[in-house]
Design a protein around this nucleic acid. Structure first.
Lengths: 192, 192
DNA sequence: ACCTCCTTGTTTAGGCCTAAACAACGTCGG
DNA sequence: CCGACGTTGTTTAGGCCTAAACAAGGAGGT
């Protein structure tokens, strides 16, 4: 019983051996070319990667239409969802955004030039404080809402149960990677 | 030895319980700040992203030690696992590597300068043919083997059953994204 | 106070990528 | 035979990022 890729949802049973996709081919190719090396991780890692790439490309195009870029969205989102007073230091932003301090400096510089944030010296002139401006508020709220609705639709082909299961597995994978990799900065220090 | 945590405020009980992680917090934050917008996708998409980022950072550092970069690894891997004669056109490489034609031109240029590949004109001077050199062979084989062993270890905290389940869910997610997004180039043209 | 060490932020150099403009070559239909 | 087209590759401009060198400002021990 062979089937083609047809428009209608074919019968969803029979362990419908998911005909090998591009990633399976990569895995089989290495198994054939380099016998002996463990290729199992490819099934997970390469798929995570490609999925992230596609979602990223998709997001980039969507954001371009909305007049904002991925990096700025990340910065403004972090400030916005923190709730009032919608401000924090570059150091904290670095921990939450998962990028280097240099990247934060650049992001803030661009966002400031765009009028979305304002960088001010705290009393005494010590630590820096990056805060969302009214324009930044308007920009991020509209973008996030549209983006979330769009992305919710993007993964709409997964059933609620599948999404939950996937969420749990990814949570476990991520948690393990954080503990292992740099068991030093899992999230961030004080977390005040 | 280095400090584990700053002396003073005790750790905010990071139980081994799969309770709320950083991504859950982002999801809850948006739910609180922007009631009404669908936040479910965050559980999957943001986790895929962060997982990809960590795996990417990890891979980048590993490869730096091995003397090769991610982009070159991808290029040489694609040529190597294709099996003899370890050569193909830039157009085919573009489809398999999932990057733009411009990126392929640059990758080939760098790899050629490094002596890992050779770009030759097919008989008649028609299409271009990128082929792995002996040096390229040696480089990619050593790198792939070590990388795969390392990454297999990286996701070692997932049980075989969990990895399989995760693989299947990601396969489905990816498949749906490919059909939807650019229903144009799921894999590649002819596929001869 | 004084000196050392650490944390903050900025800056700079180098890398890789996408998008878009181009240059060349076949392919086809008239 | 010839012009419109689609492909193939390259080049260029612009963006964002990491790593690393720096510049300052505290926090503590002596």
């Amino acid at each position: 019983m062979q089937r083609e890729r047809k428009p209608g949802p074919s019968v969803p049973e029979t362990g419908a051996v998911p005909q090998s996709d591009a990633v399976d081919e990569i895995q089989h190719a290495w198994l054939r070319e380099l016998p002996g090396v463990p290729v199992e991780s490819i099934g997970v890692i390469t798929r995570v990667w490609r999925t992230a790439k596609i979602l990223g490309d998709e997001r980039r195009r969507t954001l371009t239409r909305l007049g904002i870029d991925s990096a700025t969205l990340d910065l403004l989102s972090t400030l916005r969802r923190a709730g009032p007073p919608y401000a924090m230091t570059p150091a904290r932003l670095k921990d939450l955004c998962l990028v280097t301090a240099g990247a934060i400096s650049q992001r803030v510089g661009r966002a400031e030039a765009a009028g979305a944030v304002r960088a001010v010296r705290s009393p005494g002139g010590r630590t820096l404080r990056v805060e969302l401006t009214d324009a930044g508020h308007a920009l991020i709220e509209g973008s996030v809402e549209r983006l979330l609705r769009y992305e919710d639709d993007l993964i709409g082909h997964l059933s609620p149960a599948e999404r939950d299961r996937l969420t749990e597995l990814l949570r476990k994978l991520l948690d393990g990677l954080l503990e292992r990799g740099h068991g030093d900065s899992p999230i961030g220090p004080p977390e005040d």
